[in-house]
Design a binder for these strands. Structure first.
Lengths: 203, 203
DNA sequence: GCAATTCTGTACCAGTCGGTACATTTATCA
DNA sequence: TGATAAATGTACCGACTGGTACAGAATTGC
């Protein structure tokens, strides 16, 4: 079972490095040579560990959502006793901190990749994955809002889908602005504004 | 002066086709072969007419802003007698119509390209151009808001930069959502909400 | 020690990339 | 009718693309 030569690299570490490279340069902007250089391994090792470029990207997307995306989304569900406005602000603040983190690529891998979907710069299977992830995001927002509406902190007349789409647009727009160099500070002010009057909104 | 063989194609038509191809597939996702095939011309003709890939992309960005972007932005300045709310909604409605137009690539070339900036999937000069375009967009929004504030239709305490960044995030987010397949209808509802949120905001 | 197993490094594959040299065709001007 | 100018089609360039064959190195169980 444990026979054979030992791996000289850690698969998870390599996956994280690959994720950051895709995050920075995108799918078609990242070559296998870029990857092997950054990961410090040779091509056969890479192909043995991750299959091919498309599989590696899928794994990177998954890794990104689990390790960079989800921790921010948890801010929305931390506790229903905290007012929705505070949770939304905390969520967006955490997102802004991520997408402007100087130690990480600017912006968001999901948003960036979504802009590549439905093109032949991206394999169809990846476009499909991205569509599912987008749907999951909207569903998560809707679930939070629905709970709030049931709890009475949001008017019963409010259109949940509308509000979720609105929040998603602010969320994704922030990622684009971060990529274009906007400061965390100005993004935070915009995010506060996006949330501030949300609760006053009458369906 | 008029000596020499006649061109067999129209430069502007070819530029528009190239723009749509970049719009669909992005800079690094569009090859010279793709371009010559779609434009129906050979490589020497393409290089003679547009320089090289980078120059062609710069020209495409310019063409895009002039022929697809600007007409929408004009909705903001159509007349100061029309209430800001109506102009903002008309602006966003026109943008949504563009980014979801079934006869055009989904989303926005500027937003898509911005997500590629600061990466080696894009020449540095193009990243610089995109940064300038982003700055122009923010400045245009700020100018509109400043006028409104001076005219008294927006509270004098309002932070113009904050409001402009907020609008930009909604605007860019809509382009991302369009690319991921959101319907014009749901985007329109989200945009309406964004506008009413903005108008309810008190500095 | 010795097979079996697994990873590593090198060297290579066909195909495509952006870009160009060059000869040819088509036009204008003298 | 040339001479000149400009656009065309073909054929090619070195570099890079994603991907792999193969030999050798390292580890295990027997």
């Amino acid at each position: 079972m444990n026979a054979g030569r030992k791996k000289t690299f850690d698969t998870q570490e390599a996956l994280d490095k690959a994720t950051k490279l895709f995050w920075l340069n995108g799918y078609s902007g990242t070559s296998i040579s870029d990857l092997t250089a950054t990961l410090g391994i040779n091509k056969p090792s890479l192909y043995n560990a991750f299959g091919n470029k498309e599989h590696l990207f899928q794994a990177s997307l998954d890794h990104y959502m689990k390790h960079y995306g989800s921790p921010r989304w948890e801010k929305l569900n931390v506790s229903e006793e905290i007012p929705l406005e505070h949770r939304l602000k905390a969520f967006l603040q955490a997102v802004i901190k991520l997408v402007t983190d100087p130690g990480l690529p600017q912006g968001c891998l999901f948003v960036k990749s979504t802009c590549d979907s439905n093109s032949h710069a991206l394999p169809e299977a990846i476009t499909q994955t991205l569509k599912e992830l987008a749907s999951n995001n909207l569903t998560a927002l809707e679930a939070v809002l629905r709970k709030e509406r049931a709890a009475g902190s949001i008017p019963p007349t409010v259109d949940i889908d509308q509000m979720a789409t609105y929040l998603a647009s602010v969320l994704y727009g922030i990622a684009v602005l971060a990529r274009s160099g906007s400061s965390a500070d100005s993004l935070q002010k915009a995010a506060d504004m996006a949330v501030s009057t949300l609760l006053q909104h009458k369906g």
